[in-house]
């Protein structure tokens, strides 16, 4: 489903590679934690999968797409099949909860009819049916992240990429989000989540891919965060 082959990424403005000869293979349906201290290259790896960046060396595959070689005009198609959420939620502050979810469908050319049926479905999935008309400013952090997840899933992606989705949330709220991501994964969506939250990783006991200074340090099928800090 996702494959990185000997991927290196060197940003033009920095001497040290952000990723250094990394190879990872993720099967459809897996739940993968991508861990490592700040600056270890987690976000860079996710950006390569989204074609936000291209690798300096190596190849990136998502489903049947050779991501690094994809012509620009086909990038939107790739991204429509990948959902992503971030630490800072990235909701549009001037649109309601329902409109934020509808936005993802609207700008990818879905019909009015599809939008009217899919938006309530997604809000129900993330338990926000009653808050469809709220504005983002009126939501708690956990609620905002759930709206972002609903938006990410609206186009029925193959993969959900989450870059420190609990980074701005307190532990209880984080647990809610993890329960939701787990539920989504069990329903069939591949999930890759970058985090440096030890408790979450230890509690979930899922596959752990650890990066350290851009190098692959560990790849455990049922890992914990690890002793090293």
């Amino acid at each position: 489903m996702l494959r990185l082959e000997n991927v290196s990424k060197i940003y033009p403005t920095s001497a040290r590679p952000a990723l250094d000869d990394v190879s990872v293979d993720v099967e459809a349906g897996e739940f993968v934690f991508l861990i490592g201290p700040s600056g270890s290259g987690k976000s860079t790896l996710l950006r390569l999968l989204l074609r936000e960046e291209t690798p300096t060396r190596g190849s990136v595959y998502v489903a049947n797409w050779n991501v690094a070689r994809l012509p620009n005009r086909k990038v939107p198609k790739l991204r429509q099949r990948m959902g992503c959420v971030f630490q800072d939620f990235r909701l549009l502050p001037t649109r309601s909860v329902a409109d934020n979810v509808a936005f993802a469908l609207e700008v990818t050319g879905k019909s009015e009819h599809t939008i009217r049926t899919v938006v309530p479905e997604m809000l129900e999935l993330v338990n926000l049916t009653g808050k469809a008309d709220r504005m983002p400013a009126e939501l708690s952090g956990g609620e905002a992240q759930r709206v972002a997840i609903a938006r990410a899933l609206a186009n029925r992606p193959l993969v959900l990429l989450a870059d420190e989705p609990t980074g701005n949330l307190d532990p209880e709220t984080s647990d809610d989000i993890m329960l939701l991501l787990d539920r989504i994964n069990r329903a069939g969506t591949t999930v890759v989540m970058a985090t440096h939250d030890r408790q979450i990783v230890d509690a979930m006991r899922r596959r752990v891919v650890e990066l350290h200074l851009g190098r692959l340090a560990r790849d455990d099928a049922r890992g914990v965060y690890g002793a090293r800090r």
Binding site: L50, R73, V75, P76, K77, L78, R79, Q80, R81, M82, C84, R90, L92, F103, A104, V107, T108, G109, R151, A152, A154, N155
Partner: peptide
């Protein structure tokens, strides 16, 4: 930015 992330075309 959000449009691009969710796969909006040009």
């Amino acid at each position: 930015g959000i449009m691009r992330l969710v796969g909006a075309t040009r």
